[in-house]
Simulated assay, not measured.
Amino acid sequence: MNMLKETKVSYFNPETSLASFHFIHTLKSCYKECFSLNKHLVILCIGSDRVIGDCLGPLVGHKLSSLLKSSDISIYGTLNNPVHAKNLNTTIKKIRATIRNPYIIALDSSLGTNSHVGCVTLGKGSLSPGIGTGKSLPQVGDIYITGIVNESGINNIATLQTTHLNTVMRLADFISSGLYMSVRPSKAR
Rank of each mutant, 00 (worst) to 15 (best):
D72N: 13
I143W: 05
L37V: 10
H62M: 13
N101E: 07
T7Q: 08
K135S: 10
L79R: 04
H22S: 14
T133W: 07
L67V: 05
L56Q: 00
P129R: 06
T98D: 06
S36I: 14
A97D: 07
I52C: 10
G134T: 02
E6W: 15
G125L: 03
L27V: 06
L37P: 12
V42I: 00
K93N: 08
K86F: 15
T78Q: 03
G57S: 01
C55L: 10
R100F: 11
G141D: 08
K8M: 09
I46P: 09
V42G: 06
D108Q: 05
T146Y: 00
P82T: 01
Y76I: 03
T26K: 15
C119W: 02
F12N: 03
S74I: 01
L67R: 05
N80Y: 09
S115D: 10
G141L: 04
A106L: 05
L111C: 03
G118H: 01
H116Q: 11
N89A: 14
S71D: 09
L64F: 11
L107V: 00
T98L: 07
H62R: 10
I131F: 14
N13M: 00
N81F: 12
L127N: 03
L44P: 14
P14E: 00
A85E: 05
S74P: 01
G134Q: 08
S29T: 08
C119A: 07
S115C: 07
N80P: 13
S66N: 10
E6L: 14
R96Y: 09
S128G: 15
S65M: 12
K135Y: 11
I52W: 11
S110L: 03
R96Q: 12
N81K: 13
H25N: 09
S110N: 10
I145V: 03
V120D: 02
I143D: 12
I148D: 02
K124I: 14
L18P: 11
S36T: 14
G132Y: 03
I105N: 08
V140A: 06
Y103F: 08
L56C: 03
K86H: 15
L137T: 08
D72A: 13
Q139F: 12
V60P: 12
P58F: 03
L111T: 05
P82H: 07
